[in-house]
Amino acid sequence: MTAAKKIAASESKARAAEFPAKAGEPAVEVEERSTDGADGTRHVKEFVVLKATWPGRDEADSHKANGAAVANEAIQRGLHPRGEPRFDGAEDHPDGLSLTLTYSVDTVPSSVDHTPGDTTTPRDVLRSEG
């Protein structure tokens, strides 16, 4: 069996497990728990907003609020955020009237988190200066 087939078999087995991170595949678990996708262990969240109303207030405040929502969603999906959420960019939405705003945050699946006290909470995001 080639190395590529071994890796594919390992990922396939991990996907079948309830907690792929416990099988050594944390990125697989993050991907399965992130509805808008993942980039390795980064949980990705997309927001669709009307172009005409974005930003509805100070843009930095809007990004901070969305970052807190990203951290909250990650926690709700069994992922523990680490560090500040990041604004990854905006794209025109196919409806022509909206923008898709993409954010992400590095995470650790809760099933393998040995330091849960290091989790970044939505409150931490809102209190941060960044």
Rank of each mutant, 00 (worst) to 15 (best):
L101R: 07
T119L: 05
P26H: 06
A52R: 12
G96Y: 11
A9G: 12
S10G: 04
E18F: 01
P94H: 11
T100C: 04
L99M: 12
K51Q: 07
I7P: 00
T41M: 08
D88H: 08
G117E: 15
E84N: 09
E25D: 05
K13W: 04
K51C: 02
A3P: 03
D61S: 09
V28Q: 08
V48R: 02
A52G: 02
S34G: 07
Q76K: 15
V108G: 03
V125N: 01
E31W: 08
A38D: 07
P94I: 10
G96D: 06
P85R: 05
H43C: 11
F47K: 02
E129L: 11
A3N: 11
A17M: 11
E18V: 13
T100G: 02
P122S: 09
D36L: 08
E11C: 05
H114R: 12
A4I: 14
G130I: 13
F47S: 02
L126A: 07
A17Q: 09
A23L: 14
S98P: 10
S104T: 13
V44W: 01
G24T: 08
D118M: 14
H93I: 08
E29C: 12
E59P: 00
W54N: 01
V70S: 04
L101C: 10
E18T: 14
R57M: 10
S110F: 13
T102W: 04
G56C: 00
S110A: 15
D39Q: 15
D39T: 11
A27V: 07
E25T: 03
F47D: 03
T115N: 15
T121Y: 04
D95V: 12
V44S: 01
S34I: 10
K64Q: 10
S62I: 05
A69Y: 00
